[in-house]
Amino acid sequence: MAAASIRLHHRATIVFFKPMPTTTQAHLGGHARTVSNRIAVFAMAAAERAGVPPELFTARTGIGTRELADTNGRIDGARHRRVVELMTQLGPSARVAFERPQTLFPDFPVLGNLCLNARTLREALESFCTFRALIGEFDFLYFRETSDYARFDYIAEFAPGDGFQALANFQVIASLVRVYEEPHRTPLYVSLVCPTLPGPQDPSDFFGTQVRYDVAASRLEFPAALLDVPFGRCNSALAPFLREQAQRELLRVKRGHLFSNTVEQLIGEIITDAGDERCSSPSLLARICERLETSRWTLHRQLQTEGLHFTELEARVKFKEACRLLRETHLSVAQISEQLGFSSQSAFTRFFRTRHDAPPSAFRLSERR
Rank of each mutant, 00 (worst) to 15 (best):
P198Y: 10
L258Y: 14
F231Y: 15
S346N: 10
P195V: 06
A322E: 07
S343W: 09
A322Y: 05
L121E: 09
G51M: 13
E277W: 10
S337F: 13
Q210E: 15
L238Y: 11
L104D: 13
D214A: 08
A118Q: 09
T88L: 04
A150Y: 06
L285F: 03
D273L: 03
V96Q: 15
L28Y: 14
Q302L: 11
E181N: 03
R132L: 03
Q201N: 11
G136K: 08
F108R: 07
P200S: 09
F131L: 04
R278G: 00
N72T: 01
E338S: 05
D273Q: 05
F259Y: 15
S260K: 07
G268W: 10
R291V: 12
E312N: 10
L86R: 04
R11T: 13
K18G: 00
Q165G: 08
S36L: 07
L331I: 02
H10A: 06
L308S: 01
V41T: 06
A40F: 11
Q302Y: 03
L134T: 01
D76K: 13
L250F: 06
H31I: 09
P109V: 11
E338P: 01
F108N: 11
S93M: 12
A224N: 04
R353P: 04
I288F: 01
P19V: 11
I135G: 00
P195D: 06
C289P: 11
G51F: 14
A97L: 14
L90C: 00
P200G: 09
G29W: 09
T34S: 12
S93R: 15
F138S: 07
V83L: 08
R350C: 00
G91E: 05
G341E: 10
P187C: 09
Q302N: 05
I14C: 09
L114C: 01
E290V: 03
R49Q: 10
T61I: 06
V263E: 07
E306N: 05
H9Y: 00
A239F: 06
Q247M: 13
S337L: 13
L313N: 02
D107F: 14
V172Y: 02
T88I: 03
F259I: 08
I336Y: 07
A166N: 03
Q245C: 06
V263T: 13
V215I: 06
F98M: 08
V15L: 12
R233L: 10
E55N: 08
N113Q: 10
N37P: 02
R132M: 04
R49E: 06
L141T: 14
F105P: 01
A78Y: 12
D107T: 05
N117P: 04
